[in-house]
Design a protein around this nucleic acid. Structure first.
Lengths: 118, 118
DNA sequence: ATTATAGTTGAACAACCGTTCAACTGTCAA
DNA sequence: TTGACAGTTGAACGGTTGTTCAACTATAAT
């Protein structure tokens, strides 16, 4: 069943009928990818981890201790951060050391903080 | 019932027992606020709206048409964007014109795009 | 070999999120 | 004043997400 209210109608207002800039959307996939990237920053736990890793390379255990969280929860979030290439890591014996992947991360964290504090 | 695996134990590895940088977390509220801000970018629909508004001020109808979405869905997202101060708007008769709130928005969009395209 | 520790993983559960649907407000034109 | 249109809003539905729990691997020490 079709609900007419859901079908966008051509707007009759000047903003739409008059001459205006022709806007072009990019392929859907690009928005999905980009949204997935930002989504990673959209959780307090992951932000804490990212801020911490910006100051120092850390093992899972240290992060868990710092955040008062289970190693499991932290490991899940680190896996998520890894998948989205926000962090990288190296293994040394039993221990896995994590660090920020590149410079965009800090830049985005700073821009967000600026926005909040204004 | 307490699950011991959930209580972070003091790590016995060198990374934790040795001398290391003293990390200090900020108040929980700051992370929550910041996460809420980034979360706004974490949806393809909202990204499309933001990119579109970066090019031109637009009414709800025009956005709905551009994205092939219902005015309701767009209006919900715009309300969300407004609450998080990513867009502002002015009324002119029946029509509501939306635009980006400030410059951080475009900066963050660009930084994200850079990260994806590398 | 046995035990302890660092870390990972999949399933499950509750909380959250995006769209739809239906009903509504406010403005404008006939 | 009636109807049409731009836009908003709240409830509801299904899909997603973050943490927990339990079981697991791998490395190191006794």
């Amino acid at each position: 069943m079709i609900n007419m209210a859901d079908i966008p109608t051509k707007c009759t207002e000047a903003c739409c009928t008059g001459p205006r800039v022709e806007l072009q959307l990019r392929p859907e996939e690009e928005y999905i990818q980009l949204a997935a990237f930002y989504k990673v920053f959209g959780d307090p736990t992951r932000l804490k981890i990212l801020w911490a890793l910006d100051e120092s390379e850390l093992c899972v255990c240290a992060i868990a201790e710092l955040l008062s969280m289970s190693k499991s929860a932290v490991s899940h979030q680190l896996a998520y951060l890894r998948q989205n290439r926000l962090v990288s890591f190296r293994r040394e014996g039993k221990t896995a050391y994590y660090r920020l992947a590149d410079d965009h991360i800090k830049m985005i964290l700073d821009a967000g903080t600026d926005h909040i504090n204004e």
